[in-house]
Write a protein that binds this DNA or RNA. Structure first.
Ligand code: FES
Ligand code: FES
Lengths: 140, 140
DNA sequence: ATAAAATGCTATCAATTAGTAGTATTTAAC
DNA sequence: GTTAAATACTACTAATTGATAGCATTTTAT
């Protein structure tokens, strides 16, 4: 059950970009608006490009925009791309392969909470975030 | 949403000790049975003593035993003692104080899963682990 | 062409977390 | 009392993760 700071940065930035899903965002704008260290974000953005979430357009007037339909980018994909699949799904005792399986007393207790988290991350797309954003904005 | 390796080690060891809650365990036995590096575990055990979960008995024939009723040691106390309170409860975007509160679109989506995790950790005591252990053992 | 404004890359540094080494202290068996 | 078996302590090392620096490349406006 681990979410690195880098994944959190990714959530900030991609969530921000989802506001206007067709727009082109410069790294400059993104690090300013999301409080992510400039250079660190630049590297993260290239990674996110390589993972296929966004694409980069080079040169003056360049920037980043989504590479795929954001209704099909689920939060869990982002975490797993950055932190690896074990980060969320791994054994609560830190064993590589839940050694004890059913006989481990922690397993069942934890499994339920874990599944809940996995489901939330698996069922929430950036589009859902966007919609949520519209809803909440309408309260302002 | 973070659980350090150290917390996982603590779960292993305290869960193991809960098998026989009145027994005195030597560090030697604990690191052998739970695959935790010797020296690292020794330090962890002194920490767990200082936190008041267990107490140490020095000298030959010494070891560690629970300092409190294990039905009142909840998993979340262990995590919070080791990793700090923000590790589990913190903002999904990594902000110190969930800056946006209700206006942040991630908030509600995540809150539900987070509460589920917190409840699981808050409601599960080492005694529950022990009981679970007895149940599962009876299947063997 | 040239300059400006953007991304791309690689190497390095810093901070945090995990793990080790070595020695001192405590206590009980003999 | 001496030795053996345990914990306690402090300082160090290693690994991982987060952050920076500096230069190269791409593209467009002029
Ligand atoms: S061994 Fe992984 S939860 Fe029990
Ligand atoms: S600011 Fe923390 S979840 Fe939105």
């Amino acid at each position: 059950m681990n979410l690195s700071k880098t994944s959190k940065y990714a959530f900030r930035v991609l969530g921000y970009m989802a506001k206007d899903e067709k727009a082109l965002y410069s790294a400059r704008q993104l690090y300013r608006e999301n409080n992510v260290p400039e250079k660190y974000l630049r590297r993260l953005l290239t990674h996110l490009s390589k993972f296929g979430f966004i694409k980069s357009i080079q040169g003056r007037q360049g920037g980043f925009t989504f590479a795929r339909d954001i209704s099909k980018i689920f939060l869990i994909e982002i975490v797993e791309a950055i932190d690896g699949t074990e980060s969320i799904r791994g054994c609560i005792l830190g064993y590589k392969k839940c050694a004890f399986n059913f006989s481990c007393p922690m397993h069942d207790i934890w499994e339920d909470a874990k599944v809940h988290v996995i489901n939330t991350l698996s069922n929430t797309s950036l589009k859902d975030i966007q919609n949520k954003m519209v809803e909440t904005d309408s309260f302002l």
